[in-house]
């Protein structure tokens, strides 16, 4: 079963990391990811640019273009993973491991209904 792990965190907080702190977190996360990758169970991983670079298209008639992210929340969607896990417990375990090296915020674990690997080379 494929799960999407949506990463929410306070953007101000993550933005306050020094470059070194940021690099340490990314390095630790990559160790956790590598374990799944080696088993061929790690799908696309994305870290999104700050919400200040976001634009929202409201599908009204006519569609409305708004600056900023879809929702104003205390914690923002900052990235996501797609992973192949047997069940929710396994997906939660992976999320716990990620959380252990990158504390704070929350992960939303959502089963994937339709998955298309896409055609963009990494």
């Amino acid at each position: 079963m494929l799960y999407a792990i949506l990463c929410y965190h306070d953007e101000d907080f993550v933005g306050s990391w020094t470059r070194e702190q940021d690099a340490v977190v990314m390095q630790k996360l990559s160790v956790v990811q590598d374990k799944l990758a080696k088993q061929g169970r790690l799908g696309p991983v994305a870290r999104l640019l700050p919400t200040t670079s976001a634009t929202t298209l409201r599908k009204e008639d006519p569609p409305l273009v708004l600056d900023g992210p879809y929702a104003e929340t205390k914690e923002q969607l900052l990235g996501f993973y797609v992973v192949d896990c047997r069940n929710l417990d396994e997906a939660l375990d992976f999320a716990r491991e990620l959380g252990a090296v990158n504390p704070g915020g929350a992960y939303e674990i959502r089963p994937v209904g339709v998955f298309m690997p896409g055609s963009i080379p990494a």
Binding site: F13, G15, W17, P103
Partner: peptide, 15 residues
């Protein structure tokens, strides 16, 4: 990140 570095970042961003 150590505990205090984590708190430091939170204090800086909330400042």
């Amino acid at each position: 990140m150590t505990d205090t570095a984590w708190i430091d970042a939170a204090l800086t961003s909330a400042r």
